[in-house]
């Protein structure tokens, strides 16, 4: 027996499966993306449109526009409603709310269609020739190429590079420890020399710290102040320019 609402049954099925995937995280990240996105952006609007317009006459374009538009509008309103619940906006509340809304709308749509002679909703793009499919496919390949070219260009490191040096008090309150760190954002591996000072006197030196791009070096060091209240500072040098202070940091002096 042919059903008059296969579209709505499909919507209901996708909603249930999508909700289950989001709630249980079964199937991994890609499954969640594939089923979670329609749960937010397509299924609620489609069911709502079907419930409001059971009659024939709403064309493909109208249905598409209303499906996407009411889904987006529904998300803004539903978020507001969830905000006022004690549970707030969480993956679980979104899933339950959207699934309930979609299934309820689908049920209403089925009920409204039952009493009418209207034909089921049909989707057709007309005849697309093989040549057109081939052209679309070529366009898709070019689009992917354009995306890859653009992303590669955006991710390519440019400029002179930089190095971060930082100093923070130790995690023990009132202690004499300091945390020092270096992160290299340079385009190639760089060798550094780090000097730790107390009251302008070098109290410790790390003569060679080699860092590849993106790598971090950190240390927690106990510092005995050279005199009470002396400032603790760290000065970083690049070994290829050993006499020029490359980065400097300092903690505030105590009173």
């Amino acid at each position: 027996m042919r059903t008059r609402y296969p579209d709505l049954l499909l919507v209901a099925a996708l909603t249930v499966v999508g909700a289950a995937v989001v709630l249980t995280s079964v199937g991994g990240g890609m499954t969640r993306v594939v089923l979670g996105l329609p749960l937010a952006l397509v299924l609620p609007g489609y069911a709502l449109t079907a419930a409001l317009f059971p009659e024939q006459g709403l064309g493909l374009l109208d249905r598409l526009t209303l499906t996407l538009g009411t889904s987006l509008a529904g998300l803004t309103i539903l978020g507001l409603a969830l905000n006022w619940t004690p549970w707030g906006l969480t993956p679980a509340t979104w899933t339950v709310a959207l699934a309930t809304l979609t299934l309820a709308a689908a049920l209403v749509a089925i009920r409204r269609r039952q009493g009418r002679v209207a034909e089921p909703v049909r989707f057709s793009l007309g005849g697309i020739s093989r040549r057109q499919w081939a052209t679309f496919a070529l366009g898709a390949v070019m689009l992917v190429a354009a995306v890859m070219v653009d992303r590669a260009g955006a991710l390519e490191p440019r400029g002179a590079g930089f190095t971060q040096l930082w100093i923070l008090p130790g995690t023990q309150p009132g202690g004499e420890e300091v945390r020092i760190g270096i992160t290299s954002g340079e385009p190639s591996t760089v060798a550094y020399r780090l000097e730790l000072e107390s009251g302008s006197q070098v109290v410790r030196t790390w003569s060679t710290i080699e860092l590849a791009p993106g790598k971090t070096w950190q240390a927690t060091v106990a510092v005995n102040p050279i005199r009470p209240g002396a400032r603790t500072a760290a000065v970083l040098f690049r070994l290829d320019f050993p006499d020029i202070a490359y980065r400097q940091v300092a903690l505030a002096g105590s009173k």
Binding site: G36, L39, L75, G79, N83, L89, L98
Partner: peptide, 24 residues
């Protein structure tokens, strides 16, 4: 909060970063 609501829904449901959710 309309935009924040819609983008949060996308991000939370699909488990995607906010940037991707925003683009979509």
């Amino acid at each position: 909060p309309g935009l924040a609501s819609a983008a949060a829904a996308m991000s939370q449901l699909a488990g995607i970063p906010i940037f991707t959710a925003g683009l979509i």
